[in-house]
Structures are given as structure tokens and as C-alpha cells.
């Protein structure tokens, strides 16, 4: 589904990703762990197509297509979803209006039937409930005045509604208490199936107790330096990131 070969990327002329390789198949959950400044967030931004994140070398194929030439919105409509570490607040655009615009355009692009207004409302309310968000959130501005946890749950709610093929979760656990973490993890786990893949980017092993990965990769200085099964996360937790420097 996702094939990344020798990916190099710059941010403001600074080289952040330095030859990253990753293969993700449908149904798999990959965790990417790494210390601060290793390039974790940059990785998510580069894949999603953020302006100012310049790919200097390598290739990224998503379902066989070169996505590096696509705009961020086109990648999203192709089925790539990035859940943000810090979702932005957009006062004046209601959550409902935003969701409707997002889902309508995505479903149209993917050749799916559009939702009629009633079905859409019903679905949006249902998914709100699923991630434990009050329905009033739909009427409020996008993330406006939401707590950290509410923002993260809103991201997961959007993910569920958009039904993407590949979900990248960028430190979705940061700033969450245990209960919120459980809600977020339940949302993610409910989406897991044989056709959908996840890349879970995180500092801590804790999230991986809730979202159990098939593979764990360690990112250091813009490269994946070690890969393994879920037990690698536990080993990292025990030995710390300084351990990988010695590898």
C-alpha cells in the first residue's frame, strides 16, 4: 500500500529526513518511535504534503501512485489521513460545515454515493458518540475552545467518517489522560481491518499497549535504524533512546 524508498526531505534548507525506507501493507499497524528531533512529525507532514517540506530525494508510492507530485488535498482524497499532534482551531467554520465539505468532496472523488443531509447528520451524531464527544461540538467552530483531549477525539472522529486507506497518527497520545487515551485507542481499533493500514508515531510505549502494532520502527536522525515486532517498544521503554545510539 505504502512504499517509501530512500526518502530525503528538507525543511527550510535543513536536512531532516535522511534516507528513510518503509513498506506498509494493507491491514498492518506500524509504530514509529524516536526521540525528540528525530524527524517524526516531519515524516507525517512530508507524507501529507505540507508546503515548505521539500523532498530532495527518494520516492513515495501510495497504492502504486507517486504521491509526491500531488497536493495535500489530493492525497487526502486518495485515502491518506493525518491525525495532527496539534490540530488547529478555525473559528467561524463550524465543525459540521467542515465535516460536510470534507466528506462530500472525498466521497465524490472516490466515486462513492454522496450522503444525503439526514444520513450525514445521523452518522455525524453517531460517530460523535463513539468518540465520546458531545453533539454540540458539531455546531461549534472547528476545534474552537476544545481541550487537548477533545481535539484529539475530534481527529479520530474525522478519521472514522472519512474511511481512509492509510491513517498516520502523529503523537495522538500526547496530552491525553488515561481515559481519553482509551477512547482514542478504541476509535482506532474499531477502524482496524484487513484493508486499512496505520502508522502510529509516538514517543512512548504506553499508546502501544492500547493500539497493538504489528511492527515497531525506531527513527533516529532521519532514518529508521531498527525495526522489530511489538516487543521492540518494550525494550526501548526499558533501555531508553540512548540505547539505539550504541547500536
Amino acid at each position: 500500500m505504502l512504499s517509501i524508498k530512500n526518502l530525503h526531505a528538507n525543511v527550510e534548507d535543513k536536512n531532516i529526513l535522511k534516507g528513510l525506507n518503509l513498506e506498509v501493507k494493507p491491514g498492518e499497524v506500524h509504530a514509529i518511535m524516536g526521540p525528540n528531533g528525530s524527524g517524526k512529525s516531519t515524516f507525517g507532514y512530508v507524507l501529507s504534503g505540507r508546503e515548505g517540506y521539500e523532498v530532495t530525494e527518494g520516492e513515495v508510492k501510495f497504492d502504486g501512485q507517486n504521491i509526491l507530485e500531488m497536493e495535500a488535498d489530493e492525497r487526502a482524497r486518495e485515502g491518506l489521513f493525518l491525525a495532527f499532534q496539534y490540530p488547529v482551531e478555525i473559528p467561524g467554520v463550524s465543525n459540521m460545515e467542515f465535516l460536510k465539505a470534507s466528506i462530500d468532496t472525498t466521497r465524490e472523488y472516490q466515486g462513492k454515493e454522496p450522503y444525503d443531509a439526514v444520513t450525514f447528520m445521523k452518522l455525524a451524531r453517531e460517530k460523535c458518540q463513539q468518540v465520546n464527544l458531545d453533539q454540540n461540538f458539531l455546531k461549534r467552530g472547528v476545534n474552537e475552545g476544545f481541550s487537548g483531549g477533545e481535539k484529539k477525539r475530534n481527529e479520530i472522529m474525522q478519521m472514522i467518517m472519512l474511511e481512509p486507506k492509510l491513517c498516520i497518527l502523529d503523537e495522538t497520545d500526547s496530552g491525553l489522560d488515561i481515559d481519553a487515551l482509551q477512547v482514542v485507542a478504541d476509535g482506532v481499533n474499531a477502524c482496524r481491518d484487513d484493508n486499512r493500514a496505520f502508522i502510529v508515531v509516538t514517543h512512548y510505549q504506553r499508546l502501544l499497549d492500547y493500539i497493538v502494532p504489528d511492527y515497531v520502527h525506531v527513527l533516529s536522525d532521519g532514518k529508521i535504524v531498527k525495526s522489530g515486532g511489538k516487543e521492540l517498544a518494550l525494550e526501548l521503554e526499558e533501555k531508553g533512546y540512548s540505547w539505539i545510539d550504541k547500536l
Binding site: S48, G49, R50, E51, E71, A72, D73, R75, A76, R77, F81, L82, F84, P87, V88, I90, P91, G92, V93, E97, F98, A101, S102, T105, T106, Y109, G141, Q158, L162
Partner: peptide, 24 residues
């Protein structure tokens, strides 16, 4: 720009994103 990008990552094209933010 961050808001434009956020809307784009949800499938909304740049032009439409700017329009939504202007109306907002």
C-alpha cells in the same frame, strides 16, 4: 497557512479552503 493546510489534509482543495476561511 496552517488552517489552509489543515483543511487540505481533509480533502478540501486550496481554493475552497481559502474561501471557507474568508467567509469564516
Amino acid at each position: 497557512e496552517k488552517s489552509v493546510y489543515y483543511l487540505q489534509t481533509r480533502g478540501i482543495d486550496r481554493q475552497k479552503a481559502k474561501k471557507m476561511l474568508s467567509i469564516a
